[in-house]
């Protein structure tokens, strides 16, 4: 049963009860307990295709609660709790959703070392996955989102999870926090794109979340082998330029892109090495999304024919 299959009233009842609302988000099950209806409205819209989980092992137990002091009512705030710990300062109540997203990132980032975690977008087509490792602001979220909106399978916009034991990519197609000008870019690119509320003045500027493609969310359990590693860089007015990267250079770029490369020790080294050995590694400079998508498609078709 998906989030959208239950009524909002049921959703509120679930999440305000002691058992909470449990949702499968990629490989993780998250229990959410909150009484905040405005948060739940945004959540239920952006996570509409995610499965409600019953009787499964819960990885993260999250409570979104108002403080117990005067800020409960006056300029109301919200606090993110995980297992009785509040790791962050309170947020304004109307920024509860970005706080939840940020907090969940924090939970995963500090504990999920059964994965090599890359700061990368990930998409897939024809059974071939492309990893887009890049720094914030390079346009990887926008690029991955655009590919998702053109029917590619969207696996992640900034959390590339490589399973430490076998090197397969684990999808986690959460809503994409589009920032500043990317919001308009995506709206212009695809008028049917569904975006959540606009949050001005967050740490990253103005943020609005893009709903993930239904088909991608439905395939959250389908792991895939990486085929290409492409380091994207948006540059205004640029042609679409692909350049092959030497292996040693790609290795350094990919390993430093990981959140937990050091923690992963030998396993981390082996996973990056395998990816560099088995994937085509390229850099990409672009400005026109349609052109990039077209060319990426051709390259994947080519890759497939090489394999055959």
């Amino acid at each position: 049963m998906k989030i959208k299959d239950i009524t909002f009233k049921q959703l509120v009842e679930h999440s305000s009860g002691s058992k909470g609302l449990c949702v499968s988000i990629g490989p993780f099950v998250v229990r959410i307990r909150t009484k905040e209806k405005s948060f739940l409205q945004t959540f239920s819209m952006l996570y509409q295709d995610f499965e409600v989980s019953e009787g499964e092992f819960v990885d993260f137990h999250i409570d979104m609660r108002r403080p117990t002091n005067v800020r409960r009512w006056v300029n109301a705030q919200i606090i993110f709790w995980v297992d009785g710990i509040a790791p962050f300062e309170p947020f304004p109540l109307d920024h509860a959703f970005p706080l939840f997203e940020w907090g969940l990132n924090w939970c995963i980032g500090r504990s999920a070392h059964q994965y090599l975690m890359l700061h990368s977008g990930v998409v897939e087509k024809y059974g071939k996955a492309i990893i887009f490792p890049a720094l914030p602001g390079s346009g990887k979220s926008t690029l991955s989102s655009a590919l998702g909106l053109r029917g590619w399978r969207f696996l992640s916009d900034e959390f590339g999870l490589i399973r430490a034991n076998d090197g397969l990519l684990q999808p986690m197609p959460r809503p994409v926090p589009l920032k500043n000008t990317s919001i308009q870019v995506i709206q212009n690119f695809e008028t049917s794109a569904v975006l959540g509320p606009v949050y001005p003045k967050t740490r990253k500027g103005t943020v609005s979340h893009l709903q993930s493609p239904t088909a991608s969310v439905e395939q959250s359990n389908k792991l895939v082998k990486p085929a290409m590693v492409i380091f994207p860089r948006y540059q205004e007015g640029s042609e679409t330029i692909f350049e092959e990267l030497p292996a040693h250079y790609a290795f350094l770029k990919l390993s430093t892109n990981s959140f937990n490369y050091e923690v992963m020790g030998l396993k981390g080294f082996e996973r990056v090495r395998d990816m560099i050995d088995s994937c085509t590694c390229l850099s990409l400079t672009y400005s026109n999304l349609d052109d990039v998508i077209d060319q990426l498609d051709k390259r994947l078709v080519n890759e497939s024919s090489h394999d055959g």
Partner: peptide
Amino acid sequence: VPEKVLDHFQAAQQLVNYRKQ
């Protein structure tokens, strides 16, 4: 041991190994 629990063990051990190193 349930698969999910093994994941938690593996992740925690990974962090322990790193700190030990």
